[in-house]
Structure formats: C-alpha cells, structure tokens
C-alpha cells in the first residue's frame, strides 16, 4: 500500500502523518486524530454528517481523500467550541431552540451553519434552509434547526469570528 506524508492544520494545531493514499479524510480525522465529532451517515456524500470546514469551504469529508487535504486548514466541530470551553453561538442556539435530538447530524450541521453565517451573516429562513440542504436530519424536521441558526445569527449580530483559524 502506497503511503504519503501529509501535513495540515486541524483546529489550529499542526498535524503530520503518513497515510495510505486511499485513506478517506473522515477516517483520517476519526481514526487517526481521534476527532470523532464528524460522523459517517450515508457513505455517498448525501447526508453531510461528515461535514468539516476546509480552507473556508464546507466539505463532505467522506468523499475526499486525506491526501487531497494536504496543506489545508481544517476546522471540525471540536474546533468550533472555544479553547476555554465556551460554546459558540451556534452551539448555544441548537440547545436553546431544541435543534437536535439524537445528535448524530449535529456536528456536521453546526459546522455547515458556521460557514453559512460566515458568508451570509443575516440569512432569511429560505436561505438557511437552502444553505443547510446538504445536511440531512432524521429527527428534528429542521424547523428548530432553522431557529437555532437564526438565534446564532442574531446573537452574533453579524460579527461572526472565525474560530481557531
């Protein structure tokens, strides 16, 4: 099995590893780096449970090889929580608005919403629904997720700060 040295910044920390060429980014994060926040739901890039932020883009880490992320800066749900343990406005919002139930889609959903608010700090309900349409939730019916994102947008007042970057 061919291996390759990769280096990247994950949640603000420099990481180096030798990985098999075919190692999926999600497995690199979960199995090699122990970042088990992002999950695998569908395997085929439809559910978004594996969403991470890569160089300022929301990507599905189950449909990307770790070698493709060589040199990248990655943010996972673990990096969205403040270094001192304070919750991000989105994390607060999901709890306040009951935007989660089983919690399995939540890390991907919050990570995606994080990028959405970076790009559009005052989204309408329709923009939120469209913006999170790459993330499936089986429990909530999305209505409270929309409210959670609205809560965060309001709380941040459009002054969203990049976390761990």
């Amino acid at each position: 099995m061919s291996k390759m040295q990769v280096s990247m910044t994950v949640n603000g920390t420099a990481v180096e590893a030798r990985v098999e060429h075919r190692t999926l980014l999600i497995h690199f994060l979960r199995d090699h780096l122990n970042l088990t926040g992002p999950h695998i739901g569908c395997d085929t890039s439809h559910c978004g449970a594996c969403t991470v932020d890569l160089d300022g883009k929301s990507v599905k880490s189950c449909t990307m090889f770790a070698v493709q992320a060589d040199g990248a800066s990655i943010l996972t749900i673990e990096g969205i929580t403040g270094a001192d343990g304070t919750l991000h406005a989105l994390q607060d919002g999901f709890r306040e608005m009951h935007g989660l139930q089983c919690g399995f889609c939540t890390p991907g959903m919050i990570t995606r919403a994080y990028r959405l608010l970076q790009e559009n700090p005052h989204p309408t309900e329709e923009e939120i629904r469209f913006g999170i349409s790459g993330n499936l939730c089986r429990c909530t019916g999305y209505q409270n997720i929309v409210k959670a994102v609205q809560y965060a947008a309001e709380k941040l007042g459009g002054k969203l700060k990049e976390a761990a970057e």
């Binding site: 979960r30 199995d31 122990n34 970042l35 088990t36 926040g37 992002p38 999950h39 695998i40 996972t76 749900i77 673990e78 969205i80 929580t81 919750l87 989105l90 994390q91 999901f94 709890r95 989660l100 919690g103 399995f104 939540t106 890390p107 919050i110």
Partner: peptide, 16 residues
C-alpha cells in the same frame, strides 16, 4: 445537548 453540540457524543463507532 451539552455533549452533542460539541461533537462529544459517544456513539458505537467512536469506541476505540
């Protein structure tokens, strides 16, 4: 929710 919103849930495949 405190653990779930931080990605700190403990699901089966997280177990090592």
């Amino acid at each position: 929710d405190i653990r779930f919103v931080q990605g700190k849930g403990n699901y089966v495949d997280d177990l090592k």
